[in-house]
Design a protein around this nucleic acid. Structure first.
Length: 261
DNA sequence: CTAGATGTTAAGGT
DNA sequence: CACCTTAACATCTA
C-alpha cells in the first residue's frame, strides 16, 4: 500500500483527525518498529504535547509537535494509521497507540513490521541523514532532468531509488513506465532529454492523479495500468496480455507490445 | 510446502 | 565509484 500517494492520503487523514489534541499517554505493543529510539524516548518526548502540523517527504509522514520534535512514521509495505474512539475498534496489528486527552486514539498499524517510527529534529535533517532524494511530487523539472541524467541503471530500478527521488515504489514505477511506453529494463542512460522531460511530466501526472483518487487504485482511470495490474489481464491500450517479469528483483508488469526497450 | 506481496538495508561481487 | 544480486527482516495468503 504505502507509496507516495498512499502516504499522502495518510497525511490528509492524520491532518483531519489527530491535530491539536493533547497526547495523554502512549503505549508500545511491539518495539520492533522503533528505530533509533526506545519506548522510553517516546514516553519522554510525546505525552503532554499536541501534534500541530503534518508533512510528507517521499514515503515518510512527519507529525510536528508543539514541543518542536517531529514524530516520523514510515509504513513499510503493510502499515497505516487508524483513528478511533472505542478501544473495541482497535485494529489488528496495532504496534503503537497514541491516546489523546479527548478519549480518542491514533493507532500505528503494521502487520509485517517493516515500517519504522522515529523521532527527528526535522524532516530536512532526516532526509539528509538518510540520503533521500527530493520528494517526487515537489521536485521541479530542471532538477529532475539533472538527476536523471546521472542515472545509468534500469529505469524501473532508478525510479524506485529513494536516493534519486523519494516516494515512488514498485507499483507506481510500473504505471509511470507504462505511460511513457518504456520497457522497465530500459537503461536510464539511453534516454535523451526529450524522453527525460516526458518522464518528468508523466511522473507528476501519475502521482497527482493517484493522490486525487486518494490512492485508491480502483478509482484510477481505466486507461491506467494499475487497475489491470495482475496475472492474465490485458493492456488497456492495445489489449495484449500483460507480462510479469522480475526486474531488479521486483515484479514488473508491462505491456510487451506498447513498451519497447 | 512454496512463492510472492505496495519497503529498505547490508554485504559481496563486477 | 556506480551498479548488480542476494539475503534478510515479519507475516499472511494463494
Amino acid at each position: 500500500m504505502p507509496e507516495l500517494p498512499d502516504v499522502e492520503s495518510f497525511r490528509n487523514y492524520a491532518q483531519a483527525t489527530s491535530l491539536h489534541q493533547r497526547i495523554a499517554d502512549l503505549s508500545v505493543s511491539d518495539a520492533y518498529v522503533l528505530t533509533h529510539v526506545t519506548e522510553k524516548d517516546l514516553q519522554r518526548a510525546l505525552p503532554g504535547t499536541c501534534f500541530e502540523s503534518t508533512l510528507r517527504h517521499g514515503k515518510n509522514l512527519f507529525l510536528h509537535t508543539d514541543s518542536g520534535v517531529w514524530l516520523r512514521l514510515h509504513f513499510g509495505m503493510t502499515g497505516f494509521p487508524k483513528y478511533f474512539k472505542n478501544l473495541d475498534d482497535c485494529p489488528k496489528y496495532e504496534r503503537v497507540l497514541f491516546n489523546f486527552e479527548n478519549g480518542y486514539h491514533l493507532a500505528y498499524v503494521c502487520q509485517r513490521k517493516l515500517g519504522e517510527i522515529g523521532l527527528e529534529d526535522s524532516p530536512e535533517e532526516f532526509a539528509r541523514k538518510r540520503g533521500l532524494g527530493p520528494d517526487a511530487l515537489k521536485i521541479e523539472r530542471e532538477e529532475f532532468l539533472e538527476l536523471l541524467r546521472r542515472k545509468r541503471g534500469m529505469l524501473k530500478t532508478s525510479l524506485m531509488d529513494q536516493g534519486f527521488l523519494a516516494g515512488i515504489g514498485n507499483i507506481y514505477a510500473d504505471e509511470i513506465l507504462f505511460q511513457c511506453r518504456l520497457h522497465p529494463a530500459t537503461r536510464a542512460d539511453s534516454l535523451d532529454d526529450e524522453m527525460r522531460a516526458e518522464m518528468f511530466e508523466v511522473t507528476k501526472r501519475v502521482l497527482q492523479t493517484a493522490v486525487d483518487c486518494n490512492a485508491d487504485l480502483l478509482r484510477l482511470p481505466e486507461s491506467f495500468l494499475l487497475p489491470h495490474r495482475s496475472e492474465g489481464q490485458e493492456c488497456p491500450r492495445c489489449g495484449t496480455e500483460l507480462v510479469r517479469e522480475k526486474v531488479g528483483q521486483r515484479s514488473a508488469y508491462y505491456c510487451p507490445s506498447c513498451q519497447s526497450e
